[in-house]
Write a protein that binds this DNA or RNA. Structure first.
Lengths: 152, 152
DNA sequence: CATCATGCAACATGTAAAGTTACATGAAAC
DNA sequence: GTTTCATGTAACTTTACATGTTGCATGATG
């Protein structure tokens, strides 16, 4: 199954934006992510809706952070993407008239639900600020890498 | 994202097989699952590899259970399918030369790994025998439903 | 040897993310 | 005001993968 990488992608973008001021154009961000500007706009649209970022048109326009990074968790970002399904597995039918199917679904649902809940809890425990802090540690003494120097 | 339903499907088949003796043809099982015989053969191939089921050709042939249901867990069945990815989300690149990407991946991996581990643990706690027991409870006083009477 | 069943390869379909193209909208620079 | 830059969005193409389908080879039973 093809895996959804929007969460990873949007976090990457946000973290880059947190490293330097100034608005970033979709094109700049797209180059850094090795993707297309339209894709950037798509995944950022949900964040703008929730006022996590702001976008402006015209000269000097682009994307700007507009939230307290210590107040936004990875779960919030996930929700901003529309809460796509987390699990790669599901049932074949949603209305099981067959008792065998019901028994199977009950067992799987239990496990799936627990895993999903744990995942959401974990995502809710990490803020963007914490991610930024972790990044700073990784950077160590090194200079902060300019986004334009992003290597694919 | 489209969700993989092979685990649900194969469990459905196994549980049906546990309800009555005799070999089942792929066609019979396929009708019960409202799918194609070839699909049945595909998902059963992995189980045969691990000797959970046996298949025989020719007249009177078909699929037969060949394991102790109290010794095979849902996790075993999952593994027999080739351990397809459990989570619907992943990273964009696997070799992150970018420190930002590394920081993001580290955070997500942590959460993903925990959820995956929990899910596997849960699946490992349920045996096919337990599923069968649960099914018997659901059946209650009702007669055991013949597989040929399976309603879609 | 005819029939039934699996084994398997090859191809078709459905779905969703990801990528692309095209054009409209609005803001700043000149 | 018109040119330039940037987002907004719809429509389309591509890609990946589960699923569905067809055809034929293989082997077992009657």
């Amino acid at each position: 199954m093809k895996r959804d990488s929007r969460l990873s992608g949007v976090l990457h973008v946000l973290l880059h934006m947190a490293q330097q001021p100034g608005p970033f154009t979709s094109e700049t961000l797209a180059k850094a992510m090795d993707t297309n500007p339209v894709v950037i706009r798509r995944i950022m649209a949900g964040l703008r809706e929730l006022d996590y970022v702001r976008s402006e048109k015209g000269h000097g326009g682009g994307w700007t952070l507009a939230c307290d990074l210590s107040k936004v968790t990875l779960r919030d970002v996930y929700a901003a993407l529309g809460s796509p399904s987390l699990l790669a597995m599901g049932h074949r039918t949603e209305s099981p008239g067959c008792l065998v199917e019901q028994a199977v679904n009950a067992a799987l649902d239990q496990a799936f639900h627990d895993a999903e809940a744990l995942l959401l809890r974990r995502l809710g425990e990490v803020t963007l600020a914490m991610l930024g802090e972790d990044l700073r540690k990784r950077l160590g003494s090194r200079k902060i890498q300019d986004i334009s120097a992003h290597r694919a």
